[in-house]
Computed example of a mutant assay.
Amino acid sequence: MLRLTERLGPIAADQASDTLTLPFELRIRGRLKATSDSGRELGLFLDRGPVLRDGEGLRAESGEIVRIRAAIEPVVTAHVTAGLPLARLAYHLGNRHVQLALGSDDARPDQGWVRFPPDHVLEELAERLGATLERHQAPFDPEPGAYTQLGHGHSHSDPHSHSQAHHHEHEHEHDHDHDSHPHGHGHTHAH
């Protein structure tokens, strides 16, 4: 078994000797046994937390490099007018503590989209906010968290200085006991 132990960040396809295609639900795990796209047995032994991104390289103890690919999987893409409608849609969906991918359509510069795993509650919410839904198969590679940077808790491009003592207080106040939420869908956290 090839033991993958080091995250390399984004790499070019020609830098890797093999690829590993995984759905999002497996790219959030730090420990995993898998089979590469060429049929080799792999073991992931990585730090917990950061999601494996499409195009990210992993180095094995032997020095070999494997490139991660986001699998094609069922998704819902909510298309809406760019600007405030897109911001409102992203805000309300993100407030449900789900992973979201964001993008724009080059063919329609007045449109943007938010992509998420199928969920009837989120789909209803998106439609109420004026989005047109597309249920299809595509890679799901959601936005990394605002403070995520390859194994670091905070990005060093944060607007506040790390040389001063400080603590973070989150301005949102709500119960994190997910059994008490009025909506009935699962939660995926990549903290």
Rank of each mutant, 00 (worst) to 15 (best):
H79N: 03
W113E: 09
H120K: 03
R135V: 14
G39Y: 01
S180E: 12
H185Q: 10
L4Y: 09
H156P: 13
D47K: 02
E173I: 07
A70M: 01
L93Q: 03
W113H: 14
E64S: 10
L44A: 00
R31L: 15
D106R: 15
D37I: 04
H167E: 11
L150I: 03
E56Y: 00
G184R: 12
H172D: 05
T35I: 14
V66T: 01
G49S: 02
T188L: 12
G9L: 07
S62G: 04
G145W: 06
H162A: 10
A60K: 02
S157C: 07
S161T: 08
G43Q: 15
L2R: 14
A12V: 06
I72N: 14
E127H: 09
P10F: 07
H152K: 15
G103I: 00
Q99I: 01
H79Q: 05
E173C: 08
L129K: 13
T132D: 15
H176Q: 11
H167V: 11
P117R: 13
D179W: 07
A165T: 07
L46F: 03
R135F: 05
R135G: 07
Y147L: 15
E134D: 15
W113Q: 06
V66M: 01
R27E: 06
R27H: 05
A138V: 07
G153I: 02
L20C: 11
P74N: 04
L26C: 07
T77V: 08
S104P: 04
H185Y: 13
H168W: 11
H185K: 02
E127A: 14
T21A: 06
G94N: 04
G63D: 01
Q149N: 13
Q137C: 10
